[in-house]
């Protein structure tokens, strides 16, 4: 059995307490949410924090609610809760479609949206969802809260703009009446990380696309998005030809690398193919199909 290196453990009693603990212990402290990325890394001894600050008692980080024209998802909301949320399902099919194919039901009981976002794995499915929906995150430190667009959140693989003594507390998604959304993933096996995934939302009004978002993961898209493809579609009818052209633009935004999940040519192909499939579904859904 693999075992972590020695580590201390503290349970935060509030977000403020967690921030205080982070400030006290500096960069050797790590926040513990679901633990399903961090603990395996610690067991491999690739991560060796000196102290873990457990957020699991913080009810203030839980819950999914509507605030104005946004859906607010607490950082400690689990994948299982996102999957089962009627609020999210009412506004965006993409959540359920994405969550169904993230890890497995047992892992989804522990893994959280905040943990997933902050792990910033370049193959993270929720990052594609968040980027597609042009969501934002609320980050809190001792100096107060700041809000950051998810498309500005990532510094690179496994790196985010959350500071050493800060906590991501919420993820927010704008509500878009009439939006259709969809998530398409190809994986080698259920529960595997994606070979490629694409999430989109599309608003079709008056026969043309008035708003859309395209998020891609595991294919090296900067900030998990494809802005050129989105811009291309705005004002155009969601015809097969236009969607296909946008899908190709989305693939053009990708720089995947080859690994055991597939070679570069295949991943680029998937970026295009899955974008097209997701756009078709989302456009049809927006049009009431």
């Amino acid at each position: 059995m693999q075992t972590p290196a020695p580590v201390d453990y503290a349970r935060a009693t509030s977000v403020a307490d967690a921030i205080a603990l982070l400030e006290k212990h500096g960069e050797e402290a790590r926040l513990l949410a679901g633990g399903h990325s961090l603990l395996p890394m610690m067991k491999l001894r690739l991560a060796r924090p000196e102290i873990l600050i457990d957020l699991n008692d913080l009810d203030e980080l839980r819950g999914i609610r509507i605030e104005g024209d946004e859906i607010v998802v607490g950082a400690m909301v689990t994948h299982a809760e996102i999957l089962d949320s009627p609020v999210l399902a009412e506004h965006y099919a993409i959540f359920r479609e994405a969550e169904k194919v993230i890890a497995d039901p047992i892992v989804r009981n522990k893994g959280t949206i905040g943990g997933s976002m902050c792990q910033a794995d370049p193959s993270e499915d929720l990052s594609a969802v968040g980027s597609a929906l042009k969501g934002s995150v609320v980050i809190q430190g001792s100096g107060g809260k700041r809000t950051l667009a998810l498309r500005e959140f990532h510094e690179g693989p496994y790196e985010t703009k959350v500071g050493d003594a800060e906590i991501l507390t919420e993820v927010r998604f704008p509500i878009r009446p009439g939006a259709g959304s969809a998530y398409e993933k190809v994986e080698r096996r259920v529960g595997d990380w994606p070979v490629a995934s694409v999430g989109v939302f599309v608003v079709v009004a008056g026969g043309v696309v008035t708003d859309c978002g395209i998020g891609l993961t595991a294919v090296g898209a900067e900030h998990f998005c494809a802005p050129d493809a989105e811009a291309y579609l705005i004002g155009k009818a969601p015809t097969e030809e236009n969607l296909a052209a946008a899908a190709q633009l989305a693939a053009d935004a990708c720089t995947p690398y080859a690994d055991q999940r597939g070679p570069v040519d295949y991943k680029l192909h998937l970026a295009c193919e899955l974008t097209l499939r997701a756009l078709r579904k989302a456009a049809a859904s927006s049009q009431g199909a």
Binding site: V186, R188, V195, R261, G262, P263, D265, Y266, H269
Partner: peptide, 14 residues
Amino acid sequence: TPANVWRAIQGNAI
């Protein structure tokens, strides 16, 4: 794998 099948279709199996 999906990659291998797709590549085979392209005439270029892995």
